[in-house]
Design a protein around this nucleic acid. Structure first.
Lengths: 146, 146
DNA sequence: GTAGGTGCAAATCGTTTGCTGATTC
DNA sequence: GAATCAGCAAACGATTTGCACCTAC
């Protein structure tokens, strides 16, 4: 499930099932989201798409991202300050590790997470639907720079 | 540490130490944050303060909240959609449980959380500075309404 | 008296929306 | 050919800022 090409094909299939069209711009956005390098922001996607299609507008990126989000094909990491970030390769809740210096985002392995959800559900009576777990820190590269 | 009055006194002390003043509006904001009922938003604080001081402006609420945030006396829960929410009684990272229906926020007890941080730090080499853990679900009251 | 605070209005920034003309299927 | 999409500009909502007046200390 971490194969960008397979993920891209899957997204394309899902779009066609819903009678959505594959324009060159949209294709470029899909590729970037499926690659998921550093969990890009809309602005970053925009810059990369403009390299191939200089006419592209920000609104188009937003529209495609919103569509994929509604389809559940990408995971949105919302931030109240900076812009939101997106994960197109693992569109389900999972922990993230965010470098506060370079703003890169990676996926750490966390073994004991599902226990946490159960623990909270049992002790509170809530019906847990989703979760969000972010760790903030300084990545090894940025530590060296200091 | 969950005593609103003690927390209020502590905030007042911290403000005076920094040569900040205690205006009636600011006092009202502090009280609401120290009570921490449901982790209020700026808008909610504004509405409650206006009950006592109708002249109060939103900007003043924002300025006080920003000041307290910078002083580390309140915890900000940023949300990219809805407005941010604040915790004035436990101004350090801890898990939250958010009802997606009524938007209320409570603090669940989670035992195994500190292990998680260590696990991530060790396996990634990051210097973990902070974290954020949110669970989204439907609270018992809202479950009954359905 | 003075540093700091308040209230107002305007500015900001990420995101959304309305519309018109173009494009995919 | 028709439904969908792209691009542009205007609208939006939460938050911030600039500034003149005010007030706690």
């Amino acid at each position: 499930m971490a194969d960008p090409q397979a993920r891209l094909d899957e997204m394309i299939t899902k779009l066609k099932e819903r009678d959505h069209r594959l324009t060159p711009q949209r294709m470029a956005v899909l590729k970037i989201l499926a690659a998921n390098e550093g969990h890009p922001s809309v602005e970053q996607i925009y810059e990369r798409v403009k390299a191939d299609f200089p006419m592209t507008s920000l609104a188009t990126i937003y529209k495609t991202v919103t569509l994929l989000k509604e389809m559940g094909e990408i995971l949105e990491l919302g931030f109240s300050n900076d812009g939101n970030r997106y994960d197109g390769i693992r569109p389900y809740p999972h922990p993230h590790l965010i470098c506060t210096e370079c703003k890169n985002i990676v996926d750490p392995d966390v073994a004991t997470l599902s226990e946490l959800r159960q623990e909270v559900a049992q002790s509170t009576g809530y019906q847990i639907v989703s979760h969000r777990l972010d760790f903030f820190g300084i990545c090894p590269q940025c530590q060296e720079k200091e």
